[in-house]
Simulated scan of single mutants.
Amino acid sequence: MSKKNRRAGGTALAENGAQESSPENPRRPCPCGSGRRYKACHGSADAADLIVTRPFAGLAAETELIALREFLPAASAPLTLIEPRADIPSVTVASVLPGAAAALTRSDRSILLGMQVQTHTGDLSRDLAAALEWALAAEPSSVLSVIGRATVGNRYGDLIVDEPLDVTVYDDFSWWLEEEIVPGSEVALSLERANAAIMPTARVADLPGAYWVDAGERAHLRWVRPEDEPPLMAALARLHVADQLDLGSGSRYVGSFRAHGRLVPVWDLDRDAHPSEWDEPARAFADRLAAALAVDEPLTDAERRARDGILGRQFTLR
């Protein structure tokens, strides 16, 4: 990328929220939120391939957007445009769309945005905004298969109202369809194949980011947490030492994974129990965790050992 193009990119980034607007200062913090200097991040030649660790940092919907992106099979949530359009009846974000499309418009110009897409850049927030901007200008019944490689432009919070998401989880993908399908048709066969891949999933106690899933041999609770990792790990260690880390009979804490800058604790659950049976245990755990997070004292030796053991039960998605 030439110096001229880099300066043009720097100006565009500044117009979309740079902390320091001068395109002549490559040492300023990159406005994408990565923590890097601009010259080493979106001002570099390979900017399209850089990873923004927390693409949805600071958003009320962060945990739900991560769940939609990483592990929810069939789910959606309505979005609210900052600048509503009379000709756009609705905007909906979904876990996955037909063909893993980035976006599509329906016959009435309502918009569906996909989180689990065929290709993406290193900034999922900008990808989502780019897909939305395409859909706002697209004709009815259009499909955007893949995202481009833009390194500047709007991000999710520039176009969508910052509010919690009301996620609906579906048993199948029939919600994709605008009209009834003909039995035996190619559409019907494609839908059948997609439905066969769905693992039964349910929200738990309407707690943000908390989802039960039947993975076959066992069931799990996966819970995207909003807290930063160090205080969350300390709180989990305190609960472990107090023998309060599980969700009661038939449950076992097994570890956690990282996704887009947040930690996702995982529990094994009794597969024979109905998902709703974990609502009250999950709420009780949320109360215990809140109390542990509020403790402002150094960890004891036992708690430090517990924290180290919990850290050893992690794997990294990103």
Rank of each mutant, 00 (worst) to 15 (best):
A77I: 08
L207R: 04
G261W: 01
D166Q: 14
L136T: 03
H260C: 13
L245F: 10
M233G: 09
R193H: 12
G209S: 00
D87N: 07
T105L: 03
P226T: 12
V146C: 09
D108T: 09
A18N: 07
P29D: 03
D158P: 01
W212T: 03
G255W: 10
V224F: 01
S22N: 14
G9D: 13
L124C: 04
A290F: 03
T63A: 01
V117Q: 07
D87E: 08
L236N: 12
R225L: 14
T300S: 15
V187M: 14
L113H: 09
V143M: 05
G122L: 10
R193A: 15
A291I: 13
A150C: 10
H42C: 13
V264T: 05
L59G: 02
G312A: 10
G184A: 12
R149D: 14
V182G: 00
L311E: 14
Y211Q: 00
D162C: 03
R252G: 14
V52F: 07
W175M: 11
R271W: 05
V91L: 05
E229R: 01
G114N: 01
E70N: 08
P89V: 02
Y156V: 04
A102G: 03
L247V: 03
R283S: 09
F285H: 08
E186I: 07
A103H: 00
E83D: 13
Q314D: 06
R27S: 14
I310T: 06
D158L: 01
L263R: 11
I51Y: 07
L136D: 02
R283A: 11
G114Q: 01
L177F: 06
A286L: 08
T151V: 15
Q314I: 11
L207M: 06
G9A: 15
R54K: 11
A57Y: 08
T168K: 08
D214H: 03
L299C: 06
G9M: 11
H42M: 12
R36L: 15
V187K: 12
D228R: 09
L263T: 13
P55W: 03
A138K: 04
P55I: 00
